[in-house]
């Protein structure tokens, strides 16, 4: 009975954390949307006016005028406005895009194809990231642990069927393989199919994203000539979070395997480490906070 209660508490805490996490994401998306939309509109209108003006005068076009014009275009581009096409292009700060932006900020990916251009947006971005990054870390850690626990259950299910050790190891690696295929290989293939990238480009995008480098030279859902389903970017955001959790799990397992190897190769190390573990049991999350 007591154990049952404990399990319930555990689940509710995880759920609470997940709920807080998603609420935080939604909250950020809303605020960003509110703050940035108007500025974006102004930028867009300004640019359209400039373009019309240019077109009216193009019969006597000279070098300096062109330079000026290009400068204006580039400024607009850096603020996230695509000058080709007309003003009915989908807005950069609609809800699903704002959601995507909030996700890229707190995972520290930071593509930079979108960035707040108002003062309030920038200030909010600073504080949003200040609270959001630790939260994101706690969430990912929890996600990795949950995945590990469920994997452990699955594994025990397999173990009861196949008693042989080699087969067990094979089964475990098979699960890892399938998981990695589902999380790390198929989504890039899908993205490259939807966006018209080569598979190399899709893989590059996935890598730059999941390593949280985030150049922003390839970003899903930004082509103005394409019609995307409305949830496309949000789905991409969900993929990013789960793939990061999966990577956390793999890193965890990798660390364990590495330790195992170290223990095997240095027989004296284990005993010493046991002592150290006692001493440093409050230690391991020391560096783990960025």
């Amino acid at each position: 009975m007591a154990r049952f209660k404990l399990a319930q508490v555990k689940v509710s805490r995880t759920a609470l954390l997940a709920l807080a996490y998603f609420t935080y994401l939604l909250f950020g998306a809303t605020i960003f949307q509110m703050l940035e939309r108007e500025a974006e509109n102004n930028n867009r209108n300004h640019f359209q006016l400039e373009k019309l003006h240019f077109l009216a005068n193009y019969t006597c076009l000279d070098g300096p005028a062109l330079e000026k014009f290009v400068q204006v275009i580039l400024d607009a581009w850096e603020k996230g406005v695509n000058p080709s096409g007309n003003s009915t292009n989908p807005t950069n700060w609609d809800f699903s895009s704002s959601f995507f932006f909030a996700g890229t900020v707190i995972t520290t990916i930071g593509y930079g194809n979108l960035s707040p251009s108002t003062v309030t947006g920038q200030v909010f971005c600073v504080f949003y990231a200040l609270c959001g990054i630790p939260l994101n870390l706690a969430f990912l850690k929890q996600l990795g642990k949950c995945l590990a626990v469920h994997l452990g259950r699955l594994e025990r299910g397999v173990v009861s069927f196949v008693p042989h050790k080699v087969q067990q190891a094979l089964a475990v690696s098979f699960f890892f393989f399938v998981g990695s295929l589902l999380v790390l290989v198929i989504p890039p293939l899908l993205f490259s199919y939807v966006e018209g990238w080569t598979f190399g480009e899709g893989f590059y995008f996935a890598f730059i994203t999941l390593s949280t480098i985030g150049f922003g030279d390839y970003v899903v859902g930004t082509d103005p000539d394409k019609e995307y389903i409305s949830l496309y970017r949000s789905l991409a955001g969900v993929w990013i979070i789960f793939a990061l959790g999966w990577l956390a799990l793999i890193f965890n397992m990798g660390a364990r395997v590495m330790e195992h190897v170290v223990v095997l190769t240095h027989p004296g190390f284990k005993k010493q480490k046991e002592e150290e573990e006692d001493v440093s049991s409050s230690k391991p999350e020391d560096i783990s906070k960025i």
Partner: peptide
């Protein structure tokens, strides 16, 4: 952020 993932090892 990746620091957290690999820190233990």
């Amino acid at each position: 952020m990746l620091q957290s993932l690999a820190s233990n090892s």
